[in-house]
Nucleic acid binder design. Structure first.
Ligand SMILES: Nc1ncnc2c1ncn2[C@@H]1O[C@H](COP(=O)(O)OP(=O)(O)OP(=O)(O)O)[C@@H](O)[C@H]1O
Length: 734
DNA sequence: TCCTTACTAATTTTT
DNA sequence: TTAGTAAGGA
């Protein structure tokens, strides 16, 4: 008898999609209807009930984190570790190319360039003196870079794109010229950007039928999650692989397509039915995530889009709290509104900080919330913005590691040749690069034979010779030692460690470098047999969303970063025209507004139990006051139903919250607890014991009365700032 | 030639 | 608030 227990957690329509295992299938369903759950269960079902070898299954997710979680879930269902290939498109391509890159003319250990590196490559090209006769003022960098990136991510033919999309003929010509130079430079560096990973994999398969056949034979069952956000090349890759067995299962929701600006094509969904004429379409109509109020709000908003299929999405959770709408007088009042509600949710309604997310359109909007959360001593994490592996000191260490593994990587070498300072300045580096270009070799060759290079004085040559010896020793070490020993060696030998250790103004940097080595250590423990090359590949593909963990902290993130996630409580903030929808979308076209609206739909549908949407009539941005209208999406969300717009926010019981910014707006008698604190006791040098952070010493005091803020330095934790009046209950003076 | 200092300009979303 | 550049001093 077959064990059907893994189907127990599914409804009837979900179950049908899971057990229909052969051929092409498309699951088209709204947010929170269990698409990901269906896909995950299907993978487990194939292994457990259909006796499919896990080796023959592929599942594509949108983020590495989603891949990790899916692996975990499948393993739980199977009761054994999951051997299925589950990863993002980019990660899959990187792994395939890593093995097969010689077939398309790349060397082993090619580097993977993120946005910042790509931009540096183009900047360097545009700056090179041999290019001086051409028009290339700095203002146009964004234009050219934008065009080049768009050509690649939309998989356009460069010439056709230039003809169709660039008006000015000078720019048209220059874009094409720079495009070729950019491509050649990446190739010369033995490097690929993110788009190259996809493009080159398709190319590999096109040009090498034997390789393609091998992968086709391997992937008998192919799955793609978040199909609405795949781009043309990714879809092409899917078709190539699915040609083998034709078992292709994709799930998506056109209402949640939010990466159109990066080349994602909703039309892939329509094309799927054309490309796989026998494809069966399944619909899921039960939403298991959100309460009725939240789901209705989402449905009302998205109904304003014209380009969509009408679909049904019914709630399974009747009732719940109504959506709260708040229009603040200014941004500070908005921040206070959010803080007050978080405080009440945690102190009165039994929520944890980890249940709460503050979602926004752009990273730059997060700062005031960060400051307030710090002020009130509420734990939080910000996702988006600079990632760990994007920090300056970490990037520099990564460059050293890369040049040891891939000595052709001019870009990385140029970045760190003078870090720490070695007296090899920009002018010299420019000369070296030109010399390499003229001889058709690499920076590495020029540095290696520096004695034979003309046009440099003896002192400079000597400095470069010193760097050469370092570089050679790094290469030598890469071949000999294991990942951990190697990265430790590079950190010390490069001089980075000493340099940042001596930098007292920024003590974090040396700590970050140590943390990097620990990360390598952990990686090797978790993945026995993997090398530093694997680690670098993994690091290059890490995304914001991957770093989201379940520590008990408020999540501060862009909506893009929380795609696919869910939170009991969601705040959507800064809902103003020109912010959300963004000014670009407002100016441009209806299509752009529709994508913004889909983003709003995604934001709303992240909420399980409570949703708060807020805006502010006036906001300080770009160093000036801005008056903004409330976002059209708020009105769409409210619809005809009169929503609650509380003047003074209401909560379950009596709020304990004391706003720091807008005392007048929510004037309440100061709470006795706050009054009871004698702030004058908190003086620099006093020792305190904090219930969470342990003992520390007060190192700064500012403000007065209830606004008094104390900076307290804790062992191993650094300095944290507290509003004494609020935090005193968690502290004891020693 | 290199490095520090001071100023200016610019800020959508990111695998 | 920061990243990138221009100018002036060593
Ligand atoms: N049959 C079911 N019974 C109970 N809960 C379910 C069922 N199916 C899904 N869920 C729950 O509903 C929530 C949403 O599921 P899931 O993330 O798979 O939906 P989704 O369609 O992929 O969402 P999104 O469109 O936002 O990516 C999850 O918490 C999941 O555990």
């Amino acid at each position: 008898m077959t064990d059907l227990s893994i189907l127990e957690n599914l409804n009837e329509e979900q179950r049908r999609a899971v057990v229909d295992t052969e051929g092409a299938l498309l699951v088209l369903a709204g947010a929170g209807s269990g698409k990901t759950r269906v896909l995950t269960t299907r993978v487990a079902y194939l292994v457990k009930n259909m006796n499919v070898d896990p080796y023959n299954i592929l599942a594509i997710t949108f983020t590495n984190k989603a891949a990790g979680e899916m692996k975990q879930r499948v393993a739980n269902m199977l009761g054994e570790s999951c051997e299925v290939w589950i990863s993002t498109f980019h990660s899959m391509c990187a792994q395939i190319l890593f093995r097969e890159c010689e077939r398309i003319g790349y060397g082993k250990n090619f580097s993977i360039y993120a946005e910042a590196e790509c931009a540096r490559v183009l900047k360097r090209i545009m700056k090179s003196p041999s290019d001086a006769d051409n028009e290339k003022n700095a203002k146009l960098f964004d234009t050219y870079y934008g065009h080049i990136k768009r050509i690649k991510s939309f998989n356009h033919d460069p010439k056709e794109y230039a003809e169709a999309c660039i008006g000015e003929s000078k720019i048209k010509k220059e874009t094409l010229r720079l495009f070729d130079l950019y491509q050649a430079e990446l190739k010369n560096n033995n490097a690929m950007d993110f788009d190259d990973l996809l493009i080159n994999t398709v190319k590999l398969f096109d040009e090498n039928p034997d390789v393609l056949e091998r992968y086709q034979r391997r992937f008998r069952y192919i799955h793609v999650d978040e199909f609405q956000d795949t781009n043309k090349i990714q879809y092409r890759l899917v078709r190539q692989l699915a040609k083998g067995y034709g078992n292709i299962f994709v799930v998506g929701d056109e209402d949640q397509s939010i990466y159109g600006w990066r080349g994602a094509e909703i039309s892939n969904i329509l094309d799927f039915k054309k490309d796989f004429p026998d494809a069966k379409v399944y619909k899921l109509e039960q939403n298991y995530r959100s309460t009725a109020h939240i789901l209705n709000a989402a449905n009302r908003v998205i109904a304003n889009n014209k380009k969509r299929f009408d679909k049904v999405l019914k709630t399974t959770k009747e009732g719940g709290k109504r959506v709260e709408v708040f229009n603040a007088y200014n941004d500070r009042e908005e921040v206070d509104y959010v803080m007050r509600n978080i405080n009440d949710l945690v102190t009165l309604a039994g929520y944890n900080y980890g249940d709460i997310a503050i979602l926004m359109r752009a990273n730059s909007l997060s700062r005031q919330f960060e400051e307030a959360l710090t002020l009130y001593n509420m734990p939080y994490r910000v996702y988006g913005g600079i990632r760990f592996y994007e920090r300056k000191e970490i990037k520099e260490l990564l460059c050293y590691l890369r040049i040891a593994i891939n000595p052709f990587d001019n870009e990385s070498a140029a970045r760190i040749i003078n870090v720490p300072r070695r007296g090899i300045g920009d002018a010299t580096v420019q000369k070296l690069i030109e010399c390499a270009g003229a001889n058709g070799t690499h920076l590495f060759d020029v540095v290696k034979n520096i004695e034979n290079v003309d046009g440099l004085n003896a002192g400079t040559k000597q400095k470069i010779a010193g760097f050469r010896n370092l570089w050679l020793s790094l290469i030598d070490a890469a071949g000999k030692s294991d990942a951990v020993a190697f990265s430790e060696y590079v950190l010390k030998a490069s001089g980075l460690f000493d340099m940042y250790k001596a930098d007292e103004a920024e003590p974090d940097r040396v700590e970050n470098l140590k943390e990097f080595v620990s990360a390598v250590n952990l990686f090797r423990k978790d993945n026995p047999g993997k090398t530093i090359e694997d680690f670098l590949r993994m690091v290059a593909l890490i995304s914001d969303a991957d770093e989201i963990d379940d520590s008990n902290s408020v999540t501060l993130a862009t909506i893009h970063a929380v795609k696919g996630l869910e939170f009991p409580v969601v705040f959507i903030v800064a809902l103003e025209e020109n912010i959300f929808p963004s000014s670009h979308a407002v100016i441009e076209s209806d299509d752009n507004i529709e994508e913004e609206r889909r983003l709003m739909y995604v934001a709303i549908t992240r909420a399980k139990e409570r949703l708060y949407v807020s805006s502010s009539r006036c906001r300080f941005r770009f160093n000036q006051r801005q008056n903004n209208l409330r976002s059209r999406f708020v009105q769409e969300l409210i619809g005809n139903v009169p929503a609650k717009t509380p003047q003074t926010p209401q909560s379950e019981q009596k709020s304990t919250f004391k706003p720091a910014y807008t005392g007048a707006a929510a004037a309440k008698p100061a709470s006795p607890a706050a009054n009871a604190v004698d702030v004058s006791e908190y003086t620099v040098g006093r020792k305190v014991e904090h219930s969470k952070f342990g003992t520390g010493v007060i190192v700064s005091v500012s403000g007065s009365g209830n606004e008094t803020i104390a900076g307290i330095e804790f062992e191993n934790l650094g300095i944290k700032k507290f509003v004494v009046a609020l935090a005193a209950k968690n502290m004891r003076l020693l």
